[in-house]
Each structure stands twice: as C-alpha cells, then as structure tokens.
C-alpha cells in the first residue's frame, strides 16, 4: 500500500508538472486503489519498507503545517 501511495504521488509530480491540478488529483485518487489491488494481484513481493517510512512521515508533515 505504501508502494501504491508512492506510485500515486510520483504520478502526480510526473504527469502534472504543476502540483495541485484538480483534474490529475482526481485521476490520481482513482488510480491509487487500482494500483493497490494490482500490486496485491502480482505474484511475489513488491518493495515497500522504505515507502512505509515515507508514508509515516506524511502525517507529521501535515501536522507541521506543510
């Protein structure tokens, strides 16, 4: 899930170029559940440890007023 989160985030920055674009934000939030399900459907494991740490940092960034 953390990997899917990072993928979605990457999608925002790669595709949008201008963070905050409502259209791509909507698309990204539709893609994220698909990514999670897709990653779970894949055989084997996906890299997620580092991503997990990143996701944990998000609420702290949020609370810090980013």
């Amino acid at each position: 899930m953390a990997f899917a989160y990072l993928c979605t985030l990457g999608l925002f920055f790669l595709v949008v170029g201008r963070p905050g674009n409502m259209l791509f934000q909507s698309i990204g939030l539709a893609v994220m559940p698909l990514l999670i399900v897709g990653l779970f459907a894949l055989p084997g494991r996906v890299p997620g440890g580092g991503a997990g740490l990143f996701v944990l940092a998000m609420p702290l960034m949020q609370a810090g007023g980013l």
Partner: peptide
C-alpha cells in the same frame, strides 16, 4: 466514496494541496 476521497484528497497528499 470517490467524491468524498477527492474532496479531502489534500489531507492524504498535503504536498499537492490546492486549497480544495
């Protein structure tokens, strides 16, 4: 669910917040 998720999207992705 989808509309609710998009409305509060910036909460999950604070770095892309557009005030929405």
């Amino acid at each position: 669910t989808y509309t609710g998720v998009v409305i509060h999207g910036p909460r999950l992705f604070p770095m892309i917040s557009n005030g929405h």
